[in-house]
Amino acid sequence: MDVFMKGLSKAKEGVVAAAEKTKQGVAEAAGKTKEGVLYVGSKTKEGVVHGVATVAEKTKEQVTNVGGAVVTGVTAVAQKTVEGAGSIAAATGFVKKDQLGKNEEGAPQEGILEDMPVDPDNEAYEMPSEEGYQDYEPEA
């Protein structure tokens, strides 16, 4: 019985440690998101679009440190934060509304985080759909 109880105690310690790591990862992701939003706020009209992409990228980098179902929630929060940063930029006159959601080359930025393969159960990952990809044929 002692062996059984000791095993359960060790398992509990492992769960607590994993929860603490997840909590730490979420806190880091939130900190990076805040950094990115402050970065966007300090940019001029020309830099705002690039700044919004930076927020998304920093958040995406930190999301990889967070495991399990938390990833889905962090990704949703990050996307809403990026959308909010863009709205703030438009409201303050840093950028025109028609410039939001495009990178410096004018290509749409939507789907940055949505296409990231995420499995809350950590069982399997699927690649994003290939609808947006084109076949590449090298020139002879």
Rank of each mutant, 00 (worst) to 15 (best):
V3N: 09
V3W: 02
F4W: 08
F4D: 00
M5E: 01
M5C: 00
L8N: 00
K10L: 03
K12F: 07
K12R: 02
E13F: 08
E13W: 09
E13T: 11
G14D: 12
V15Q: 00
V16I: 14
E20A: 08
E20D: 06
E20K: 05
T22M: 14
T22L: 13
Q24E: 05
Q24K: 11
G25E: 13
V26Q: 00
A27E: 01
E28S: 03
A29W: 12
A29P: 00
A30K: 05
K32Y: 10
K32G: 01
K34Q: 03
G36N: 15
L38W: 15
G41Y: 06
G41S: 12
S42Y: 07
S42C: 10
K43M: 04
T44H: 03
T44Q: 01
K45F: 13
G47F: 10
G47E: 03
V49N: 05
V49R: 13
H50P: 08
H50S: 11
G51I: 13
G51A: 04
V52P: 01
V52W: 07
A53L: 14
A56S: 08
K58P: 01
K58F: 02
K58E: 05
K58C: 02
T59W: 15
Q62R: 09
V63W: 15
T64E: 02
N65K: 07
V66R: 01
A69C: 03
V70C: 15
V70W: 04
T72A: 13
V74D: 02
V74W: 09
T75D: 07
A78E: 03
K80C: 06
T81I: 08
T81H: 02
V82T: 03
A85L: 08
G86H: 13
G86E: 13
I88E: 05
I88C: 08
A89Y: 13
A91Q: 09
A91D: 08
T92G: 09
G93E: 07
G93V: 09
F94K: 00
V95P: 14
K97C: 11
Q99W: 08
L100R: 01
L100A: 06
G101S: 07
E105G: 05
G106P: 12
G106W: 13
G106M: 12
G106E: 09
A107S: 03
Q109Y: 15
Q109L: 11
Q109T: 07
E110Q: 10
E110S: 02
I112Y: 05
L113K: 14
L113A: 09
D115N: 11
P117V: 13
P117S: 08
P117F: 06
V118F: 05
V118C: 08
D119K: 12
P120T: 04
P120V: 04
D121K: 12
D121F: 04
N122M: 05
E123S: 14
Y125V: 12
E126M: 11
E126Y: 14
M127C: 03
M127V: 15
P128Q: 05
E130D: 05
E131M: 01
G132M: 13
Y133V: 12
Y133K: 04
Y136E: 13
E137R: 09
P138I: 02
P138F: 09
E139D: 07
E139R: 05
E139C: 09
